[in-house]
Amino acid sequence: MASSLLGRQTAGRVPAWLWLLLFCAGLLPFLHGLLGVWLHWLGANPVEAVTRASGDWALRFLLLTLLMSSLRRRLGWRLGVRLRRMLGLYAFFYAVVHVLLYLWLDQFFDWVAIGEDILERPFILAGLLAFLALLPLALTSTRTMMRRLGPRWKALHRLVYAAGLLAVLHFWWMKESKSDVSEPLLYAVLLGLLLLERLVARGHPAD
């Protein structure tokens, strides 16, 4: 998502089987959640389990999306960049599921309570901002939008970094009150490495 799919380097077409494989793999967490609720895999509090899982997967796909251009730069693996749009859209898909679960099963569409939640709780606000950062990226992910926006597309899609930082912050603030930030710390380190790689890459115009 961070830069054009039609980058300067032609990476060749993605083989259909790889595309399909990734598409199916991306749906697995969703199916796991549905089946889990249906067949009682998710323990005593299935609502909590699916809310958390969807948030986790939104963040994981976001990091995977960011990983692809690093892989191209570091390992010369170019196919990944061509799969990036799907990864980014999966991040958005799970974010949508996550937000819908919150609106429905946590708040039952009580808009006053939701408004209070956003205003009073920095952890919710961070999640909302992360979501709002992802939204325009998903909306402009089509080839037509890419062409229409030209160079502004790339600038717009830098929002992915804001989304990543805000999502990690969201996770961190949520876990902080439970005195266990080990998981958000792991994501923060991974995001940090991906950002660091980009800073280093700036000195190498070869990309």
Binding site: N45, A113, D117, E120, R121
Partner: peptide
């Protein structure tokens, strides 16, 4: 009295759908 990070006005009874 809300917890700073979430409201305490409602609760999810384990096994129930609505709060």
């Amino acid at each position: 009295v809300p917890h700073p990070r979430w409201s305490q006005a409602r609760e999810r009874r384990i096994g129930e759908f609505s709060k």
